[in-house]
Design a protein around this nucleic acid. Sequence first.
DNA 1: TGAATCACCTACTGTTCCGTAGGCTACCGC
DNA 2: GCGGTAGCCTACGGAACAGTAGGTGATTCA
Lengths: 234, 234
Amino acid sequence: MASLENSAPSSPGSGSAASATGDVGGYRRGRVPRAVRERQVLALARELFAERGYQQASMDELASRAGVSKPVVYDLVGSKEALYLRCVELAGEELAQVVTKGVLSQEDPDARLRAGAIAFLEWVAEEGGGWDLLLTAGPEPGAEPLIQVRAQQSALLTMLTGETLTQMGVELDQWRVEAIAHSVNTAFEGLAIWWRANQQIPVTELVDWMAEIFFPGIKAIADSPHARPLPPTS
Amino acid sequence: MASLENSAPSSPGSGSAASATGDVGGYRRGRVPRAVRERQVLALARELFAERGYQQASMDELASRAGVSKPVVYDLVGSKEALYLRCVELAGEELAQVVTKGVLSQEDPDARLRAGAIAFLEWVAEEGGGWDLLLTAGPEPGAEPLIQVRAQQSALLTMLTGETLTQMGVELDQWRVEAIAHSVNTAFEGLAIWWRANQQIPVTELVDWMAEIFFPGIKAIADSPHARPLPPTS
DNA sequence: TGAATCACCTACTGTTCCGTAGGCTACCGC
DNA sequence: GCGGTAGCCTACGGAACAGTAGGTGATTCA
């Protein structure tokens, strides 16, 4: 699968697929090797699904964007549903991999959350519509992959939170840790949505803001595991 | 509009519309006053859209669920898109109203956040699929209403956060307050999603957890060096 | 050079589903 | 009883769209 990458003839070679009709990965229009067309179609499908959602995206339009006829698309991807699932799964894996890599690049739980958040936000900002794709997955085929992605991210956070608390010598109700992880996870999702709609604030600043919001709470919980409303000052 | 409520003949009168084919609001099958059919169709449409999303929900199925033929539905609601927008808008207004009412029922910012959160979670838990309806609104018609709903909730939170900080004698960068509001807002969304998929934990406990997570952070920010103290009097 | 293969095409089938044309029957006022 | 209307129906038009049948021309390899 990966070894087909360099089968292109000599070209001014930009790495990623061009989205305009005509040239594909350095090839002139028409008659392109199967593997190249496939990558191009996959990339375009991802964009298209991200823009329109599953139902509204038509295979005719995909074919048209790829500058190719429909049977070619069907020959490459099998069916609309299969294509969609593949796109969603790929995006999910990509996200999980990116964030996990960020998290594992650090030792300190504090730094881990920061690194994970930065990785997440940068992936969201990046071109290709992976994030939109995941967000627009509704009750269509592909809802389960999305739920899996969310669960995965939250599991990572559950791990992080639990780790932080353990380091502080505190153990908490598993449900509570999970609830916190899920809400923190979606808090970052919401932050990402807001961030994209607004001016570009440096990622590191956003992450600082989030850290300042969440860490005191976690630390406070560590100090009073079964606390009700907080006393005025700590 | 509201005065048509009691036009039903003597009946064992349950207040809300029955969802089974046959009886509607106390009427026997067939030939029901327009206003009653309309309420029934609206309620069923909301459920249907919540279950399937816009595209997958078919007007044929809606008609069938209502135990009525399609032209009747079209006569009542105009078009699929109009019906959907109406459902989404209604749900949005309902949510905004419920949360706002909760918030305004308290004076202390701390208590306001709690009350708003409880109102939100209880509305989500309630039957009728209003929350699912809002969640499944993708890039279909109706995306803008959803965005508006989120914006509205976040605005409420921006207000709350700003208020809390003001009470502490601190003023913060507007962007930062907004970012915090949006992330806290979606944090609650995520909590709601998790909550519904899991065992029923008492709402008040969930809200306690959230409060313990968020308030220390907000208070810490008030003390942080980035915060500008408010000018003496204004 | 000829044959197999590869990339690709035009043109179609069948289905789903929104929306409507036109008609039918029960009830209400007179 | 008798028009008028209110609630409802069957049956269809027509568009959008997933997926396919069958063919064409370039490229490769014996």
